[in-house]
Design a protein around this nucleic acid. Structure first.
Lengths: 277, 277
DNA sequence: CTAGTCCTCGTACGGTGTACGACGGCTGCT
DNA sequence: AGCAGCCGTCGTACACCGTACGAGGACTAG
């Protein structure tokens, strides 16, 4: 509980392992350590539990000590987001672009399901190192579909958007889950019931919403996810728009090698300027 | 500023206009009025500004008065979300399902852009009256594609998910906007630059991320939205999966009529029980 | 006139993010 | 050796948050 154990989200954002604080650094609080401790907290008790006081306590330091290593709580969230993204980079990218995109999408979705707090941080626009590595990976796949870089970005974003939107809905719906359902571990289909709200029938009846009514009598469940199917449709559309992109990659560019480290370079060993500076 | 003016999001959630407090009700604080005032606050100063104290002050009542009409702050957010959803219901649904779905999607997206706070509330799973009306509208369109209700839901959700994900990314990226850009009012394409973060080049260079590098030298902008294109791909995929669903609706069912009101029925004229009850 | 219900709201408690400044220990210069 | 100055830590204080509790006014029904 007190001592933050190792990975929690992945192998520490793709850095070379076993790497204490930088040689010249006198502090033991690396940005990474902060992020991992915060993630541990969020995993255990939700994003709301990640307060500066709680985090400091879990690290065994004074609250204000954190502010030496981090400008804001926002910056802390950025660190968490970066660490989260590092958790689902692919080790090697499948040759076929369709399976590659599917694989990437599945990984994000799984990560979100394992760390639901991440959706509350996903709004964060920060382009951290892992976000860049992540984009690079996406781009590697997209370049097998088209040579137009703008089109590559459109493809990437459309897939990523669908995943985020879908996962967001799934997780938000998870609140009212049918307790009878087996709810299989982490695969597809966390299917909540149709009537979570009291007064549902009254409203549906009085408003004459025939479609909903028949859905209800048919015993249908709202919020069936079927993530895979939606992704399939989208990929179908993309494929149709880019005929002749099916087989092997036209020009092989090796994936980004996880070369040593530059992860925290911009953020280490310097006093944190106030926001205006 | 103090007195919350009229619509702010739409014609008050589809209710008959000019309708003071219910006859037997002694209070002037309807759920609707609360929601509208909160929305006004959020529009003006962001979701963070919507605190119980601020809201109460803007309504000219004591803070704790709100808790008679609302159990939680969460319930207040539910009311805001419901009101928000009421703002983009279609008045009449185009006959062609593709243009209908496109129209619905565009409306949500516009609403989100006009009320960015709504994305912070979109996680809310509550099935309020307007959410139901909204689903009904969606279902009306989807029933022209397939008769399988489960498939209808899958279609609806995939479209909705894409819109939410896309808008979420767009708005979060809006933070670092290129100030040179004309930024045309509210149409497509709020295109932020590629380098919002300092240290970008250093990371890209040191990590050998060739795709990103070339994207950068090509002057490409990350985060180009192209919402329409992504939606088009998805609809293409859906269309391909359901051949022969193109022309007119097979069996005409009139859209849900905005019959009188039942909006706040379940929530009016009763003390608010504590959460457990 | 009285009992009861509806509605309002002042006070207080425990939480939050963080500005400010004090303080000890280490480094490097003279 | 002495001393200046930075690095890293952190106690205190402030404004703000959501909301539990209960007092009390206004109105209605009997």
């Amino acid at each position: 509980m007190a001592a933050p154990t190792e990975p929690a989200v992945g192998p520490g954002g793709r850095r070379r392992a076993g790497q204490g604080p930088p040689p010249g650094c006198r502090s033991s609080l690396s940005p990474e350590r902060l992020a991992l401790a915060a993630i541990e907290l969020a995993d255990a008790e939700g994003l709301a539990a990640v307060s500066m006081r709680r985090l400091a306590a879990s690290l065994g330091v004074g609250t204000m000590t954190l502010y030496y290593h981090v400008r804001d709580k926002d910056e802390l969230l950025d660190l968490m987001w970066n660490e989260f993204l590092g958790g689902h980079l692919l080790d090697d990218i499948p040759a076929d672009w369709r399976t590659a995109l599917t694989e990437i999408a599945r990984r994000i979705r799984q990560s979100f399901q394992r760390h639901p707090w991440a959706l509350g941080v996903a709004v964060r626009p920060a382009l951290g190192p892992n976000k860049l590595r992540y984009l690079e990976q996406y781009l590697t796949v997209a370049s097998r579909i088209t040579d137009d870089p703008d089109e590559q970005l459109r493809i990437i974003h459309s897939v990523s958007d669908l995943v985020v939107g879908c996962t967001l809905r799934e997780l938000s719906g998870q609140a009212y889950r049918d307790p009878d359902e087996p709810a299989g571990d982490h695969n597809d289909d966390p299917a909540p019931m149709l009537e979570p709200q009291p007064g549902f029938d009254a409203i549906v009846a009085a408003e004459e919403l025939p479609r909903l009514q028949s859905l209800r009598t048919a015993g249908c469940r709202l919020l069936t996810p079927r993530f895979e199917q939606a992704l399939g449709w989208l990929l179908d559309g993309i494929e149709a728009a880019h005929p002749g992109a099916r087989p092997a990659p036209p020009r092989p560019v090796e994936a980004a090698t996880p070369t040593p480290d530059l992860v925290g370079t911009a953020a280490t060993t310097r006093m944190h300027p106030k926001k205006g500076a």
